[in-house]
Design a protein around this nucleic acid. Sequence first.
DNA 1: GGGTACATGTAATCAGTTACATGATTTA
DNA 2: TAAATCATGTAACTGATTACATGTACCC
Lengths: 174, 174
Amino acid sequence: MSTVELTPTSYVVLGLLALGGPATSYDLKQLVAGTVGHFWSFPHTQLYTEPRRLAALGLVDEEQEEGGRRRRTYTLTAAGRRELEAWLAEPVAGELEIRDVGLLQLFLHTGDDPASIARLAEVQAEAHRATLATYEEMAAAAEASGAPDTPQTAALRLGLAIERAYVTFWDDLG
Amino acid sequence: MSTVELTPTSYVVLGLLALGGPATSYDLKQLVAGTVGHFWSFPHTQLYTEPRRLAALGLVDEEQEEGGRRRRTYTLTAAGRRELEAWLAEPVAGELEIRDVGLLQLFLHTGDDPASIARLAEVQAEAHRATLATYEEMAAAAEASGAPDTPQTAALRLGLAIERAYVTFWDDLG
DNA sequence: GGGTACATGTAATCAGTTACATGATTTA
DNA sequence: TAAATCATGTAACTGATTACATGTACCC
């Protein structure tokens, strides 16, 4: 039974520690940038404050080095792992939110400014093409490595599908 | 030149007032629920506080009725319309954020719990099928009405494409 | 050895959320 | 006319963001 109240951010931290082992805040920042950050990002400062909150809750261990940068390394505790696994075991119903300013801009247009919409479509198509290219590289690298399929590569496939839909959409609109 | 600092929420309010004319907070809540709320939602309280902030900035007019519920009706001012149009005219580069807890749960799984992933896939596929059905109804209704294509119906097409990608993805995974 | 980029954090602020509360309308 | 639901809001809280600041390592 889990009583503590955790946010998605908390689970990202717990999950990354579970997947990648002990890490400093900076390590987490790097990890996030290359993985979840592609679809669920947050500023680096949260990766400094959130682990400390989790440490206070006993879900991670915090160990600070003595000399040099005195950086803190975080390790998942047994309690933290339990908390994470309990959350993962129970599918959350939460609705999908697409925080896409470009889509919002499209939506809030009246129909009487086609030029503005065309400009928007062009910018967006380009941006999504770039993202798509990144994902395709990531997928190619994963495939080339010969590693087996993982939840993370599965998630990447969804990213690819979505970005392809986006590129098609904005291209058609432009 | 626009110096005031507005959030996406601000533009949703300004935009809905531009699209639908004067409205009370409750009207806005209804509007949001049927439109932008599908991909960019927020609690109703923000639709009470945000218009008042915008009124203080002179971007909307606030008029309170005397008797009964003393509800406030908001109207876009000329300044508000300028601010909105300036924002719409300049495509924002902002990255896409997909706040999807289901995807996050998938991503944070280790590879060694296929049953948990299958359960997640089932729940998610069902949820997205429901959303897809809603969108399809909306699209059918729009088509049946014979109204011309608008930015809003275009946005709906993107929603459809994304939801289809989602259903396919979770079905394949399950 | 001076500059630049990397790395690591603190502090203040605020938008957004949650919790609460009450008045008005409808319906059984 | 009581109950349920719709409508309208306020207040408190806090997670997340912004702004700031400084130390460390590398490289020219």
